[in-house]
Design a binder for these strands. Sequence first.
DNA 1: ATCGACAATGAACGATCATTCACTTAAGCA
DNA 2: TGCTTAAGTGAATGATCGTTCATTGTCGAT
Lengths: 213, 213
Amino acid sequence: MASAEEAKKKRKVDKDLHREVLLDATASVILRHGVSGATISRIQEESGLSRGMINLHFQSKDNLIRELAVHMTREYNAAWQNFTSQAPEEVSTPEHAAARLQALFETDFSEAVLNKRSARLTFAFRAEPELQALGTGYIETRGTDLHDHVRNCCHVLCQACGTHGDPETVAMAIMSLLEGLWTDFHAHPDEFSRENAIEICRTTACAFFPGYF
Amino acid sequence: MASAEEAKKKRKVDKDLHREVLLDATASVILRHGVSGATISRIQEESGLSRGMINLHFQSKDNLIRELAVHMTREYNAAWQNFTSQAPEEVSTPEHAAARLQALFETDFSEAVLNKRSARLTFAFRAEPELQALGTGYIETRGTDLHDHVRNCCHVLCQACGTHGDPETVAMAIMSLLEGLWTDFHAHPDEFSRENAIEICRTTACAFFPGYF
DNA sequence: ATCGACAATGAACGATCATTCACTTAAGCA
DNA sequence: TGCTTAAGTGAATGATCGTTCATTGTCGAT
């Protein structure tokens, strides 16, 4: 029956909603107190849900935090995957490659991608050995599609400029630069300037690929 | 009396030795279990000292971890302060400035400065809100003497090359690049290549200051 | 030999932790 | 209306947390 399935779907929605509320509350608690201060009591208080809920939906507190790490990574991946998907398979012209890189800079330092919450949590997860060893794919710089995309752009631009150094090295420099500026944001979120960060990236790209930035 | 003072000094040495043993043990525990897993019991087990020792020497566990953070920062500062002290006050010639930057790259990625332990702990401390807010000076990239030094070098080299972009921006790019490569090391300590990292820095410097690297 | 000063010890403590589970509530179905 | 199933609840539990403090050990001074 239609009503039965609908009801079941509503149930499912409620369940997922509670999961989301718990994940969100956990993120807020970690934001304020760090992973070491993320206790069941605090998460319960923050979420407004009952105490048993956490173990009901996530089996254990550690698992909840693990799933939050996965969740955050997926969100970040989605953000730039949406970005890279707009590019054609091959970045044919150097002008196009340059535009792609410029767009990447602007994406990576946009409020949506880089903010106090995402930065704090990223660094919090990176610091926990157990979460870091969770396996490849989470909060990674190496071996990602993003890295491949940057490498492609650098390859095209290096050829166009006849630049010294191989594209892989240049790509790694750009990836690391982004990473380093993220760190700067994390350490000084209030003094940090998004425009300035993009300008630093642009200046660097300009040095690597003169005439294209 | 001489013997009295000597004895007192010996006592003092023993006390400091225990402090050091505790700091070292705490570092090892954080290395394996993160800040959230650094408990008195584990530190006690690791150090081989008695349980009460921690509160005797450090008042509280939180204070012990705080002092470890201070200790680690001092060690890192000493490492590159030893490096910058070899430079003259003013980096007069561009050749000299280039050599200084190159030396900085080699210092920053040397085993003595960057290793699993230093990286893990740095990231662990950065992730804890309480430790991060400990005040300026610890584990900082901005506003340090190191930053000033790099800025000076960039200033001289920019003038010599007639480069686009102001020295401050270039300096920030180099500092961030170092930071980002540290992050890469932290995430992939076994795949990381020190030589490659230095090469990435050299390539970037070469792009900023053609002819000097 | 005795004493005073102080480092060192670890059993004991109350607080807080994550987790459990008997129970309540709600909703679809016959 | 009862029955079945599953979500939600929170008091109770035992483990582990950081800290305390009465006691012991050490050693120079008297």
